[in-house]
Design a protein around this nucleic acid. Sequence first.
DNA 1: CATGAATGAGCTTTCATTCAT
DNA 2: GATGAATGAAAGCTCATTCAT
Lengths: 234, 234, 234, 234
Amino acid sequence: MSIKDMLCNTVCPVDNARAKHVRRKEARPGELLDAALDLFVAKGFAATRAEEVAAKAGVSKGTLFLYFKSKEELFEAVVRETIGNQINQGLAEVESFDGETIDMLKFAMFAWWERVGNTKASGISKLVMSEASNFPELANFYQDNVVKPGRLLIRAILQRGVDRGEFRTLNMDYAVYSVIAPLIFLTMWKHSLGACSVEAQLDPKDYIDSQADIIVNGVLAYSPSLSHLNLNSI
Amino acid sequence: MSIKDMLCNTVCPVDNARAKHVRRKEARPGELLDAALDLFVAKGFAATRAEEVAAKAGVSKGTLFLYFKSKEELFEAVVRETIGNQINQGLAEVESFDGETIDMLKFAMFAWWERVGNTKASGISKLVMSEASNFPELANFYQDNVVKPGRLLIRAILQRGVDRGEFRTLNMDYAVYSVIAPLIFLTMWKHSLGACSVEAQLDPKDYIDSQADIIVNGVLAYSPSLSHLNLNSI
Amino acid sequence: MSIKDMLCNTVCPVDNARAKHVRRKEARPGELLDAALDLFVAKGFAATRAEEVAAKAGVSKGTLFLYFKSKEELFEAVVRETIGNQINQGLAEVESFDGETIDMLKFAMFAWWERVGNTKASGISKLVMSEASNFPELANFYQDNVVKPGRLLIRAILQRGVDRGEFRTLNMDYAVYSVIAPLIFLTMWKHSLGACSVEAQLDPKDYIDSQADIIVNGVLAYSPSLSHLNLNSI
Amino acid sequence: MSIKDMLCNTVCPVDNARAKHVRRKEARPGELLDAALDLFVAKGFAATRAEEVAAKAGVSKGTLFLYFKSKEELFEAVVRETIGNQINQGLAEVESFDGETIDMLKFAMFAWWERVGNTKASGISKLVMSEASNFPELANFYQDNVVKPGRLLIRAILQRGVDRGEFRTLNMDYAVYSVIAPLIFLTMWKHSLGACSVEAQLDPKDYIDSQADIIVNGVLAYSPSLSHLNLNSI
DNA sequence: CATGAATGAGCTTTCATTCAT
DNA sequence: GATGAATGAAAGCTCATTCAT
């Protein structure tokens, strides 16, 4: 079963019925979503005023409500539109990867950075986490469209490593977070403390490099057992 | 230099001059801080109404403002009071640890869970990250009193491992995040998506167990080089 | 009919029934009235907080309400107590005056300054005028106890001048204000604009001197007619 | 030097830079200023609720804050706008007056009544005096734009009388108040005690007539000296 | 008597949302 | 479609007043 097959069941493709309607909405007010994303990420949902969003998008306050019934709907649209199918996009690249799983994993992590982490969309993680309890449906949407597919993608990679004897046996349900946690942490950091003091900033490349290095070594076959053999004596 | 020594410069002890005066005020309205912490973590600063906090603490709206000049001051007090000197407390335990650094690291991670992660205080991470850009001073306070000391604590442990030949050479500035990121991620998860759907919940023990296992193996000496030796052929 | 006789009908002597009760209240909380007078005059009724008054009087907030049922009652007490029987006091002095009415009038004006204008009680005019429409009963009280008697006192003096042929015939109902207006104006000025900028301050003695001089000359018998006779030719 | 020349330095003309922008805003909400003036004069600043002002102006609470950042700003706008250049307007009329200074002075006093005293603007005196210590800047503004020019205007008239030999030598710094005090007293009376009881009301014409008569006679040349000559003996 | 912590009605101010133009 | 003036519900905060100590 290809990785794509593993994912296609879970990923609920964006509702096609609404697609056309949504498409028209995005024609002009795509700028509204952009503006809203920025402001929501930076200030939070409640602290962002509808008028600010409109102003940043270069339209009037009234226009915003022409395209979005309410501030909440705007928020949901921001999340839904921004999330898009990030995972699916990255999927193809990962799937077509040919080579050792170690490199595949590293590749996936850096690809994520290029595709998502280094994008405006990166703020979504922070946004969703911050507002999850105020927008439960949205949290579920995020669960279904980002978390689950992402988890499966990582899991598929790790499983590939195990299947090919490269990686040792892992508790898959939790091992995936060894990849996910550092990446999500990075985006949240970038949009919170990292944005406040210069000293708190992290260099993304070095950061991912370090994390990938440790994770990869941490899942390699035999390394744990070897450590018990006291390799120093070799 | 002991680990404690490494930390004592950065950790700014709570101002003792005001402590007594403040202490009396907080005798009763400590409940206000408790209530506020819960609500701020769950709903965010802006979405939490002052009256809710008061009600949850069992007092009237007016009483809240008797003890905190404004909602913002309440927020800051929540963060400052809750943070306390978590790190310092954990410090003693870690410092007195005698044994292999592998176990020390695992111990530290679990200890953190008991001391902080499994506490009401755990929501602070989420809170600070969510509101950092709206409360820059608070972000800096968190930096100085939690992030920096925590980073130094982890760094000290890792360095111990390296010094004793247990761990391989690491890019310390980033390696520390291999320990920090999964833990912070856990608390944020717990207070956001994890609180929404049952399926998204993580078992903390298993989670930390898995993370610790992979990290520890990822930093062990010789494992990386061994991987290049293609151990499969042995 | 003596001047005293002219007044005794209008001046309602302070209610003797309540006197004893009031007396006890004044024992300690006289300081409350003092403090309240100052603050009410300076900031107005609404802008003065009960706690401020208490603090200035050196007692606790609760004590204030021990002596005055409400802030309004405090206000009314301030006015009633402060007004006292200023006019009556001045009355005796004026009545026993023996000499030309010109000097009597001047004497009355300066006496008022010593007895009232230069006293804490002087703020009452400003206070009553500022708050009259919010405290109609008090306005009437002031009418009956200050305005009317004062008007009669002045009228009596002027009438004396007319009767003795010193003053020309005057429209008494309005002529009295030639004496009253400048004096009331002085106190209001002193407690409003005069308290703000140094340059706006008036020297009371010089001010009254000038006013009295012009008024006195303005009411003298023959002077108007004489002026038409072109006295320059004499 | 013409009277106008004497004044032009002190009267600061309303800022023309902002005028146009402000003007548009006030096109409609001029009614807000009208409503606010009435209420502030009647009840004082603190006792007037923003909602009352809005209601009286026929708009909603929110609309008021659309045009005035705060209740205080509304208050200041009321004073500044209402004051306008009352004095300057009256100036032209007085300046072009040709005839005896006695009549000029009387004319000025009655003109003031028509132009200001009998207008909504008349409440400003009471308002400013009542709230001066709470709004020091405003008090200064009033000083500069009303008090000083008014004083100079009166002084100019009196000086004209002296220069032409109609009036005797006067202590000008205080003599001006013989004109000002009765007029200001009249407006304050009208908006405080005069508004409470019918019996306390003054007929403005008669009042001014009487005041003017006495003042004018009080400043005529030779009358003071004559009084020392003991004219009774003639 | 005196205190001051606690209350809650009431006020200022904000801001999402509407709608006439 | 687009605007932005107008709305009014809702939230933060104040302060006169009460009452247990």
